[in-house]
């Protein structure tokens, strides 16, 4: 499997080349185009209940689609729903990433995806909800962000503070605490930040340069109200 990002920037696409018999899991609806040798199967990763819990709890699409080059080698073009960058990572079997629910675009079949419940405080205030995806295994993992994606590298015990709605993915070797953005409660919210995450290395944290929630609020004022 070989993958390549086309049109890097705000409106990228990924081209994935599949050898005969190879397959890739993608977020449902992510396929843009494919060779005629590629079949689309929808698959409920983790069984029906797993898929149902992912749908209800993480808001992730109910089905993943499996794109399989069943009749010979072929290629697939994949794109996320939102404008923003795509990043391709190679998982080595020991690295494990926690991914915010909208961050997953596609992954090799050998990559495992499970819903993971966060602690109460992280779930309530972390901005990603109670459930996030834990992605492990070996192979290619393709993530997408809203806006540009930025990688923060943390040395052991190095700390960094991230606004919670800008999180995309972070390695399982990091840990984080939720904190108020400013020292007082009122100042925290009037500063427009609310809660932030204090990450502690080692590991990497991928963040997105735009906040989907804020963008939604901004765009709402332009949507005509019927009646």
């Amino acid at each position: 499997m070989k993958s390549e990002i086309l049109y890097p920037g705000a409106f990228p696409m990924v081209r994935v080349e599949l050898a005969a018999g190879e397959h890739i899991k993608a977020e449902s609806g992510a396929m843009v185009a494919s060779s005629p040798t590629v079949d689309i199967e929808s698959k409920m990763e983790g069984g029906f209940l797993g898929a149902l819990s992912r749908k209800l709890l993480t808001g992730e699409k109910f089905f993943f689609q499996t794109l399989r080059a069943s009749r010979g080698p072929g290629e697939v073009l994949l794109a996320p729903t939102v404008p923003g960058e795509i990043v391709i990572m190679e998982l080595d079997g020991v690295n494990e990433y926690l991914v915010q629910k909208d961050g997953f675009l596609a992954g090799a079949e050998s990559v495992s995806i499970e819903s993971k419940m966060q602690s109460l405080s992280r779930g309530l205030m972390g901005g990603e909800g109670f459930f996030i995806l834990r992605i492990s295994g070996k192979g290619t993992l393709i993530l997408n962000s809203f806006g540009a994606i930025h990688k923060i590298e943390l040395k052991p015990d190095q700390e960094y503070i991230v606004d919670n709605s800008h999180l995309v993915a972070w390695s399982a070797t990091t840990s984080y605490n939720i904190e108020k953005a400013a020292s007082g409660w009122v100042a925290s919210f009037t500063s427009g930040e609310g809660f932030v995450c204090r990450f502690r290395g080692p590991g990497v944290v991928y963040i997105q340069s735009r906040n989907p929630g804020s963008f939604g609020n901004w765009i709402r004022q332009f949507i005509p109200v019927s009646e």
Binding site: V94, N95, E153, L154, K155, P156, S171, T173, G201, P202, G203, V204
Partner: peptide, 9 residues
Amino acid sequence: FGHEFPASG
């Protein structure tokens, strides 16, 4: 993890 290794370990 160490200074010459990638940040992801």
